[in-house]
Design a protein around this nucleic acid. Structure first.
Length: 317
DNA sequence: CTTACCGGGATCTGCCATGGGC
DNA sequence: GCCCATGGCAGATCCCGGTAAG
């Protein structure tokens, strides 16, 4: 069947010691849903336990997923990416209960669709685990004096569909990090959590700390105050995503190119751009006679289309 | 018309640990 | 002692464009 047996055995040896497995059934099932042979092989190689599921159980599970997704093809695409999310559990009642539960706390169909696409594991979590996370988020919301937890939860989960596959410990620690680091009042913290800050809630706590410490030290070394650092991060929470090396490299590169640190932190979005984009744009702009010390640097992170139009204009002038 | 402000899109799996059932 | 189900972890950005503002 084209399965990488060595890899599969290493992954889940128990599956290969069982008396009966149903790889042919699984294959027929997936082919009938529109998967290619290669996809079937890849799924079994990466998640061998899939071959222990019965056709009835698979079919029922598929139909439950189809309550959320509108086509088989969408599901195949998810399985190809992440077979584990579908096959790790055969508890279809639990799946059904999760779907009901997630609707019952106010999530929209669109949101469930997003969850299933982005974080299919959510639906294989035990109902209890999902309940714990939702309860935790409700408590956070209420503790911040916001009396519409359904809205809060809908927003935060839509912004970050990975939250439900994180441990509450991880999400809690990250929320506490934001709270204690930036001294925000309830309202500001709420806006941050269900807005630009939602994205960083699923980052590993260690990673958040390391990156934050690195950003702080790097900016201190360039003469920034703590206040400036905080303002910078709050205006651009995505910066926490940047690993130490990448952040430092970008800053070093910009400093070498004679940008001032205040210029950089006042235009944080230029850090959105990759170093290679920054490099090529700076070169092109300098060639076109653009003076960064007197002109705005925001165009370094404009979309390609807008940037090109601007460059063309500069070259004509 | 150009630029500022801001949010969205793609994406996030694959492995290990643990405790229960047999 | 085996397998299973499930919890939890580490990992590590860049780009696009709608709409408001000027």
């Amino acid at each position: 069947m084209g399965v990488d047996v060595d890899k599969a055995k290493k992954r889940q040896p128990g599956v290969f010691n069982r008396m009966g497995t149903q790889e042919q059934d699984l294959k027929m099932f997936l082919l009938s849903k529109g998967a290619s042979k290669e996809v079937v092989a890849s799924i079994i190689s990466r998640y061998p336990r899939a071959i222990t599921r019965t056709p009835e159980s698979l079919s029922e599970r598929w139909d439950l997923w189809r309550r959320i997704m509108t086509s088989d093809l969408e599901i195949i695409n998810i399985l190809e990416r992440s077979p584990e999310g579908f096959f790790r559990s055969s508890n279809n009642r639990n799946l059904e209960n999760n779907i009901k539960f997630l609707y019952s706390v106010g999530l929209t169909h669109k949101c469930l669709c997003r969850l299933l696409t982005s974080a299919p594991r959510t639906f294989s979590n035990s109902l209890d685990l999902n309940k714990q996370m939702i309860k935790f988020l409700q408590e956070v919301c209420l503790s911040l004096n916001h009396n519409k937890p359904r809205d809060f939860i809908g927003k935060i989960i839509f912004k970050n569909p990975f939250i439900l596959i994180q441990s509450t410990k991880r999400v809690k620690t990250n929320i506490e990090f934001l709270q204690s680091t930036f001294n925000l009042n309830n309202e500001k913290l709420l806006v941050l959590l269900c807005g630009p800050g939602a994205k960083i809630l699923d980052l590993s706590n260690d990673y958040v700390n390391r990156n934050y410490t690195n950003i702080k030290e790097k900016l201190f070394s360039l003469g920034c105050t703590e206040e400036e650092v905080h303002k910078f991060i709050l205006s651009y929470p995505d910066v926490i995503f940047l690993g130490e090396k990448k952040f430092n490299d970008k800053i070093d590169f910009l400093i070498e190119e004679k940008f001032s640190i205040s210029q950089i932190i006042e235009n944080p979005r230029i850090l959105d751009s990759s170093i290679s984009t920054l490099r090529s744009r700076i070169k092109e702009l300098v060639n076109a006679g653009y003076n960064f010390s007197t002109s705005n640097i925001a165009l370094l992170s404009w979309s390609q289309k807008r940037y090109k139009a601007k460059l063309k204009k500069l070259n004509i002038e």
